[in-house]
Design a binder for these strands. Structure first.
Lengths: 126, 126
DNA sequence: CCGAATCCACAACGATACTG
DNA sequence: CAGTATCGTTGTGGATTCGG
């Protein structure tokens, strides 16, 4: 992930540009809402309101904002059905699906170590 | 990961409390700095200044803050050598090591899809 | 060398209101 | 129903300074 910042090579500028891009994308993806959206979508196709309902605690704004970001990065596909009322559906693209294992792993890890972490926190706070 | 918010069960309060704890821990871990720290530490033991040097772009404050959080959650172990100047070393604990695969997977994913995402962005921005 | 505290600019977020 | 815009509050994060 992290490459050297400066090596005096002729491609120096390109390297740092590529790095900052990688870092930016990494930040987009190492983000709780994005990972929860991926986890909830999984292999399904869900409407905006369904996503909103399944991800408890997410605001309308955060959901649109993250979906827009993920669409821009090509992680989700957005399909609009021009009916009334409008119906907008989201589904994971191939790159998005490639993240399911990671998102799922994070959730699994959280549950697995929940008790351990709770105990560690009590020790630390004392 | 996400459990129902309300089911009228007698344990209702406990369930939502456990959920908010899980969500809190998930947010701590689904965080770019924490994942980069895990990725850089890997199986090594590094000093604060070494970590700071290897994670380009992280500020002194962000590093201490995240290390403190990770120590509290039991992801890293902090050992202080009472010399002068002081020497403080960090290493991953077992729960922390259990996240290496995930952190590494995210980095790998980023590099694998870098070009794809860059192209997707160009399309979207047009 | 490491860490904590202060200050402050600005980004994130929630709430609300308005459009197609 | 879905999306955008605005506003006000909270929080985040960098720079700096001081202390062990």
């Amino acid at each position: 992930m992290v490459t050297e910042q400066f090596r005096g090579s002729p491609k120096e500028a390109d390297l740092t540009r590529a790095d900052s891009l990688a870092r930016e994308i990494f930040s987009d993806v190492a983000n709780k809402w994005a990972l929860l959206i991926i986890n909830v979508l999984d292999e399904r196709t869900l409407r905006f309101s369904e996503l909103r309902h399944e991800i408890q605690g997410i605001s309308h704004k955060m959901l649109t904002q993250n979906l827009r970001m993920m669409e821009r990065n090509g992680l989700v596909e957005r399909s609009v059905h021009p009916t009334v009322p409008p119906r907008v559906e989201y589904t994971l693209t191939e790159p998005g699906r490639a993240l399911r294992g990671i998102a799922d792993g994070m959730c699994g890890w959280t549950h697995q170590y929940l008790g351990h972490i709770e105990a560690s926190r009590r020790r630390f706070d004392a």
